[in-house]
Write a protein that binds this DNA or RNA. Structure first.
Ligand SMILES: [Zn+2]
Ligand SMILES: [Zn+2]
Length: 741
DNA sequence: AGCACGCCGACT
DNA sequence: GTCGGCGTGCTC
């Protein structure tokens, strides 16, 4: 029998003997526990071994994971595909199919104690006890009153904590018996949701829904994925809810992926208001136990809808009819850290193909890859060009900050933005100010020698934080006091440059002392619930201006907001990354979409030093098509995605010479191994040092990812024995990277 | 990830 | 001559 051991870093199958106790109980896809080098590991039974390895003493499978049935075959296939496509080991991909809680020695479940009354003539006993032991009598009378059975927590709540003593006595006397019941850990136990009737659809929504319906009933071979391109506020979520209702009527299940940051209580409420308890939620804010219980509900078929972040694409459903990806352009769908570095959109497409489901992607700013597939006829394009109730999209003004400097305005706010703020605030309306940098100053530099103060562990400038009065590294968390003299030349002419959200907040407060300002960024939302608290204060208009980073751009719906200001749009434009323009366009469009969602029209002011940049101009016109036409040409000319695929290899380690040498060796292995695509590099990565480790990188380019991935794997396999990277350096592989820093 | 094995420098 | 560091390979 072959068992795939979930030991990271190994892609081998291992053979085990099936103990008599498991004979006949093993089906492929079953999770098992096996001894492995002195330890117990979780493995996946993939099937009988064709021929047992020679000269090895086989061990026996220790047992099954309790209460976890075999993974359905399409999901095992999906894991295999993910491992191949994203160049990870099979066990690493399998890890996505099993919540961590399920691999524990003992799965912890939430159990509650309940008591049952065990007395024939309660009345007699109660009256007998009344004088001698009034609390005893009270307890027994209570038990009789509630029908002979009650949960311990309820008894304590109703009769007071001091009833614990009498309960113990009653148990000893045999008047009560105790039992334990498993209870689902329900993350929404405290919330009660009113069912909400579906609103009337706009004609555009009706049309879009009709297209989705057509694809849903089409035979799988003719089924086309649907790309919903809907402007901000056009009612995409309602469309998803309707589509889900359709598949549910067809007796199939639906998965709806939502970016982690948008998976707010409000979003979940919308699903529960429509579908009640038929919804399971999977996201990282759940405790391991809650996550496991939600996972079990999905697996057992107790729900037909899953709403979740990236990893929910692996939800243990059978019979999936629909996979929706909301805000499909979002980068958070790309896994970065533990391999496989998969993109949920790609995995969803493959899962839909494997299971004959319909894939629906939605965005106001589709990823270039997705819109390209729509243009080439692979996806069916559905457009929602108007906001609900025909509310206009807010006009966007680009303000040239060079002009401001020339006019002698050295403030971070342009005259136009100040004027707009004046008007908005005096009309008692709300504003959002967006800047994609936190902290007070983004770097500190010496005026004598020009040196910027860097993190000791990373090749990154330190940011000054006013609140903590120190310099901090946003990559590794290192902090240092603000130096009085330059660390490299000793000069005291130290200059603070570049503004972050803290600075914006402070300047704003100085300009408008009576205006209520709140700041939302990683620094103010570290505490659990802080995020929701800030948004609530803003929603209740206890705050006039919300200053924030990325996290305020996503799906927030505040009707009172009539002004959105982008303090500096250039920050994401100048990154050494081929997606810089796309990211900027998305950011500006999304944040602009927060304005004018209520009855009063909104407007947007975007400050920039590059007002002629095509991405900004297109965003200002709300013209996705123009942006796309421009950007796709650039991508084609330079052979970037979607015309080519990339594989990003990063070699890192503490010894720079060893890192450089390894990077060179990796290049050799690929070149000599006959890798067919382009090999760029090695070169020091743009982020040359991170957390004390030097970083070198190579970029591989070619038209066919799966072929490239297979070739890379073959090259390393061929080199095995001849050369292997030492353990002091590590190699990370990112297929179709979202950025190549 | 943990453990054994082996090579090389430092010290009894 | 031996002890122990660490870099490397293997675990059915
Ligand atoms: Zn750092
Ligand atoms: Zn200096």
């Amino acid at each position: 029998m072959a068992v795939d051991v979930t030991a990271e870093g190994t892609d081998k199958l291992f053979t085990y003997l099936v103990p008599r106790s498991l004979a006949g109980r093993l089906t492929p896809g079953q999770w098992v526990r096996v001894p492995f080098g002195g330890r117990r590991l979780v493995g996946l039974y993939v099937g009988p071994a064709e021929r047992p390895p020679e000269g090895v003493a086989l061990k026996e499978i220790a047992g099954l994971l309790p209460d976890i049935p075999p993974i359905p075959a399409p999901l095992v296939q999906l894991a295999r595909w993910t491992a191949d496509r994203y160049l990870s080991t099979f066990p690493a991909a399998l890890r996505l199919l099993l919540p961590t809680e399920a691999r524990r020695q003992e799965v912890r479940t939430l159990t509650i104690t309940n008591y049952r009354l065990n007395v024939d003539d309660v009345e007699a006993l109660v009256s007998e006890l009344r004088r001698r032991a009034p609390r005893q009598a009270e307890l027994l009378a209570y038990m009789a009153r509630v029908g002979g059975e009650a949960e311990r927590a309820q008894v304590l709540a109703d009769l007071g904590e001091s009833i614990a003593g009498p309960i113990r006595v009653a148990l000893e006397k045999g008047w009560l018996t105790a039992g334990r019941v498993a209870r689902r850990r329900d993350p929404f136990a405290d919330e009660h949701v009113e069912p909400a009737p579906p609103p009337v659809l706009t004609p555009e929504q009706e049309q879009a829904l009709a297209s989705i319906r057509q694809e849903l009933i089409a035979p799988p071979a003719f089924r086309q994925p649907v790309l919903v391109h809907g402007v901000t506020g056009s009612g995409k979520t309602e469309l998803y809810l309707r589509a889900i209702a359709l598949v549910r009527e067809m007796g199939k299940n639906a998965i709806c992926l939502v970016p982690e940051i948008s998976l707010t209580p409000q979003m979940i409420q919308r699903f529960r208001a429509r579908f009640g308890g038929d919804v399971a939620v999977l996201h990282s804010a759940l405790s391991a136990g809650e996550r496991f219980d939600e996972w079990q509900r999905i697996r057992r078929g107790e729900v037909s809808i899953v709403v979740g972040a990236r990893s929910a694409v692996f939800a243990p459903f059978e019979n999936v009819g629909l996979i929706i990806i909301d805000e499909e352009h979002e980068q958070s769908y790309k896994q970065e850290a533990p391999p496989p570095a998969y993109h949920a959109r790609e995995v969803a497409a493959e899962r839909a193909r494997l299971e004959g489901a319909l894939l629906v992607l939605g965005s106001a700013t589709p990823a270039l890859e997705s819109f390209h597939l729509a243009q080439t006829g692979v996806y069916r394009l559905v457009s929602l060009g108007h906001r609900i109730d025909n509310r206009p999209l807010p006009p966007v003004t680009l303000v040239d900050m060079r002009e401001e400097l020339r006019a002698g305005n050295r403030s971070i706010f342009s005259r136009a933005l100040v004027e707009a703020l004046d008007q908005t605030l005096s009309a008692r309306e709300q504003a959002i100010l967006f800047l994609n940098r936190r902290g007070y100053n983004t770097f500190i530099m010496c005026r004598s020698c020009g040196e910027a103060i860097q993190c000791v562990h990373c090749a990154v400038a330190l940011t000054y934080h006013l609140g903590d009065d120190h310099l901090a590294c946003h990559y590794c968390g290192y902090t240092a006091p603000v130096p009085l003299v330059c660390p490299s030349c000793g000069s005291d002419k130290i200059r603070h440059l570049g503004a972050g959200t803290e600075r914006v907040e402070q300047e704003l407060q100085r300009l408008y002392p009576h205006v209520r300002v709140a700041r939302m960024d990683v620094d103010t939302t570290r505490r659990k619930g802080a995020h929701a608290a800030i948004l609530k204060r803003f929603a209740d208009h206890e705050v006039d201006v919300l200053v924030g980073t990325q996290m305020i751009t996503k799906g927030l719906d505040f009707p009172g907001v009539t002004l959105v200001g982008v303090v500096l749009a250039d920050t994401s434009l100048n990154l050494p990354d081929f997606r810089a323009a796309e990211r900027t366009f998305q950011l500006v469009t999304q944040v602009a979409g927060r304005a004018g969602r209520g009855d009063r029209p909104g407007r947007v002011i975007v400050q920039t030093y590059q007002p002629d940049h095509a991405a900004l101009q297109a965003a200002a016109e709300h013209d996705y098509h123009r942006f796309f036409a421009e950007e796709i040409r650039f991508r084609q000319e330079l052979d970037y995605p979607p015309f080519a695929h990339m594989i990003h290899l990063v070699i890192s380690g503490e010894d720079e010479a060893a890192v450089a040498a390894t990077a060179q060796n990796v290049h050799r292995v690929l070149a000599e191994g006959g890798f067919g695509g382009q090999i760029l590099g090695p070169a020091p990565a743009p982020l040359a040092k991170l957390r004390g480790k030097y970083r070198y990188h190579l970029v591989l380019k070619g038209p066919d990812v799966r072929a490239m991935a297979a070739e890379v794997k073959a090259c390393f396999a061929a080199a095995r024995g001849k050369w292997r990277a030492s353990r002091s350096v590590s190699l990370s592989v990112d297929v179709d990277p979202v950025s190549i820093l």
